[in-house]
Structure formats: C-alpha cells, structure tokens
Amino acid sequence: MKLETSQPQTKPSSVNEYDVVIYNIDRSSSDLKYGRGRICNKHVDEDSFKYDIFAIDYGYFHKMVPEDFIWECNEELSALPPLALHCQLANCAVIGGGAWSKMSIDAFKSYVGNEKAKILILEKTFEKLIVELKNSNPHDISTLMALTHFSTLGYVHNAISRMPTIVPKKKYMTYKNINVNDILQVRVQSGKSLEAFYVADVNDYRNFMKECDNITYYTNKESKLPEEQFVVDTLVCVKSYTNKYERAIITKIISDTRSIVKLVDWGKEEEVHIKNMRPMPEYCLKIPVLAIYCSANEIHTSYCQSIHRLLCPGFEFIIQIKEVSTKFESPNIIKIFPLKS
C-alpha cells in the first residue's frame, strides 16, 4: 500500500529490457497508483520510447507505457521477491478443447468471488504452480466448474502427471545479442590469456547484480538436483561460499557426486558436489547470460606491457566486435581500446 501511493521522483538514467522499475499502473484513473514492473519490450513511437511492462506484484501486462510514467526502482525495492504467483487449476479443462468461453471465465470469477481462498500446491512445472483452489463453496473450484458444466475434470497439458515416461521440458538460456562492429564498454569477468577470456557489458553487469538476490530466492524454492538430471549439459544453480546461488551448466561428470560446471555469468569453471546443486528456476532463464566469450586479435599498444592488469577481474575497457561466435562454443573476435580519459 505504501508503494501504491508513493510519489516517485527519480528518473532512471536508462531503461533496458529486464530492468525492474516503478511505474504508474492506473493511468486511466485520476487517483495515481504505482507498482513495480519488469521491462519486457521497448518500442520506438515517433520521437519517444514506449515499453511493455509486466507488473510483478499483480501478474498482468501493460502495453506501450510512455517514458513519462516510469521511474527508478531503488535497490532495496527491486531486491524484494515478486508478489504474484502464476497458477493453473489442476484437473480443469475446456469441454471439447479449444479456448475458454466467456461464460466459463465469468463462472470461474463468480465462484472465486472476492473472498479469501486457500490453494493446495499439487505440482510445480517450469512455468507455473498446479493448484487446487478452495474457498467457502462446498467443493473446490475445479469440481464446482465441472458440476455446473463449465469445464471437464481430467488431465490437461501442463497439469498434474506423475507418469515416469514424461520427459521434462528442455531448458534454454538467453544470450546477449551481439553484432559485428558493436562497441561495448566492458569489465573483465575471468581469463588468463588474450586468446580466451570473458567480459561483461558494464550496464548489463550493474543490472545483473540487482538480480543476484532474486536468483538465490527462487533457487532456494527448488528441491535438490535429482540424480537423473546429474548429467552433462544440465542447467543448474550452484551454491557459492557466500551461500548465494550462481547460474551454471554441467560440463563434465567426475564421479557419482561431483562434476565440473561452468559459471555462465563469470566464465569460470569449478568442481561442485551434487548436494550444492539445484535445478535452474524458470525465473533465471529469463535473465540473459552475462559473460561474453572473447579472443583479442588486436590490442592498443599502451596495453602491451600490462596483460596481467588487463585481465584482472573488474578491469574496464572498450571492445569492438570483429567476428561473432555462438554462445560459449568459440570466442568472439574483438579489438581492445582503452577507456577515454
């Protein structure tokens, strides 16, 4: 309630995809109402920008929000976990298949009403919670919908299934879009030679650091990594010495309990025990991989005598992309320039 009635003053220096911002979520009302939102898309509208924003505490989208309605979300607020949970009713399917009718949707709204309800989490998929929903009605909402002929009971896509033959949905991470001749200010993440090292775009790094607590929060909700998923190429989150979780991919199995993983946001490889691994949550897949794999074939002469300093983690410089690679399979060929003084 405090956030909804706040009067934000600070405008963000830049607005990028995946940023958490404060925005006016009730533009049609004379009473201003503010909330947290995650930037999903950016649109050019004549000489200004507009954004598609997901309201992380309410669970819906706002399209084409003007820059004038967006303010900076401070670090303390952006670190708070989103309030909205994405749910699906278990055993509740459209009669005859297809899309839900307006009558069925209206019936669901009527049965749920405005009263408090209880959910029982029956299953968790990569995208949502599969739940049973109960309130003061004599039956749970799915059963009530079926009894009044607005739905049918039964297993539906993405609903409960304990059959061992079901194969989990393949997880994929997103990567930063890089093009030839792009010029980026970067910081070193890891590396020992100019033939193979990792950097991160400075702006992406700042945004990523705001997400670290969220990554740990969502990973803590996951169970321990199942033995059948302890295989090469599985995306996992691994616990660091600070008890926070880092995103990684299993690259080599050493024994029944230990493997080598690549920390995708740092470019480093580490040996990790299975007890310190958890499946990577869906939330983490939406954050682009931070590390950019590089190889420098040209370097400014002022750096020639200071390679060790150049590859020190956190050191910043400018790069120009000369050749583009694919993910971590081979390095991007770059040229290095010093920061302008």
Results as ranks from 00 to 15, higher is better:
residue 41 N to C: 02
residue 227 E to G: 01
residue 144 L to P: 00
residue 93 A to C: 06
residue 255 S to A: 08
residue 163 M to T: 10
residue 188 V to E: 01
residue 157 H to C: 06
residue 297 N to G: 12
residue 164 P to M: 04
residue 266 W to A: 07
residue 254 I to H: 01
residue 20 V to E: 09
residue 131 V to Q: 04
residue 148 T to D: 13
residue 173 M to P: 00
residue 61 F to P: 00
residue 172 Y to R: 06
residue 34 Y to E: 01
residue 307 I to S: 11
residue 172 Y to D: 04
residue 62 H to K: 14
residue 57 D to P: 10
residue 43 H to L: 03
residue 149 H to Y: 13
residue 155 Y to R: 15
residue 313 P to Y: 09
residue 319 I to K: 06
residue 44 V to Q: 14
residue 179 N to L: 06
residue 301 T to L: 09
residue 242 T to V: 02
residue 29 S to C: 06
residue 13 S to A: 11
residue 62 H to R: 13
residue 328 F to T: 07
residue 91 N to R: 07
residue 213 D to A: 10
residue 303 Y to C: 05
residue 145 M to G: 00
residue 254 I to N: 04
residue 329 E to A: 10
residue 340 K to Y: 02
residue 101 S to C: 01
residue 260 I to T: 15
residue 140 D to Y: 01
residue 203 N to D: 03
residue 93 A to Y: 00
residue 169 K to H: 04
residue 283 Y to F: 15
residue 148 T to I: 12
residue 333 I to N: 15
residue 324 V to E: 06
residue 214 N to A: 09
residue 55 A to D: 15
residue 134 K to F: 04
residue 229 Q to E: 14
residue 24 N to H: 10
residue 152 T to V: 13
residue 87 C to M: 15
residue 44 V to A: 05
residue 29 S to Y: 07
residue 180 V to T: 12
residue 310 L to M: 14
residue 105 I to Y: 05
residue 265 D to K: 12
residue 40 C to G: 07
residue 90 A to F: 01
residue 67 E to W: 08
residue 131 V to T: 12
residue 125 T to M: 11
residue 220 N to W: 00
residue 7 Q to P: 00
residue 36 R to K: 13
residue 146 A to Y: 03
residue 120 L to G: 08
residue 311 L to D: 09
residue 323 E to M: 02
residue 267 G to P: 08
residue 299 I to P: 03
residue 32 L to W: 02
residue 285 L to F: 10
residue 121 I to V: 09
residue 34 Y to M: 11
residue 34 Y to H: 11
residue 253 I to Q: 05
residue 257 T to R: 08
residue 171 K to S: 12
residue 212 C to D: 08
residue 164 P to R: 14
residue 83 L to G: 13
residue 196 A to K: 08
residue 110 S to D: 13
residue 202 V to A: 01
residue 32 L to V: 13
residue 53 I to S: 03
residue 312 C to D: 00
residue 186 V to P: 08
residue 304 C to L: 14
residue 154 G to P: 14
residue 211 E to P: 00
residue 207 N to K: 07
residue 248 A to F: 01
residue 153 L to F: 08
residue 218 Y to E: 05
residue 148 T to N: 15
residue 163 M to K: 13
residue 65 V to T: 09
residue 1 M to R: 07
residue 284 C to D: 04
residue 339 L to R: 11
residue 57 D to A: 02
residue 157 H to N: 11
residue 153 L to P: 12
residue 253 I to M: 09
residue 161 S to T: 14
residue 260 I to N: 13
residue 121 I to R: 00
residue 318 I to T: 11
residue 166 I to S: 05
residue 286 K to Y: 09
residue 285 L to P: 08
residue 179 N to T: 07
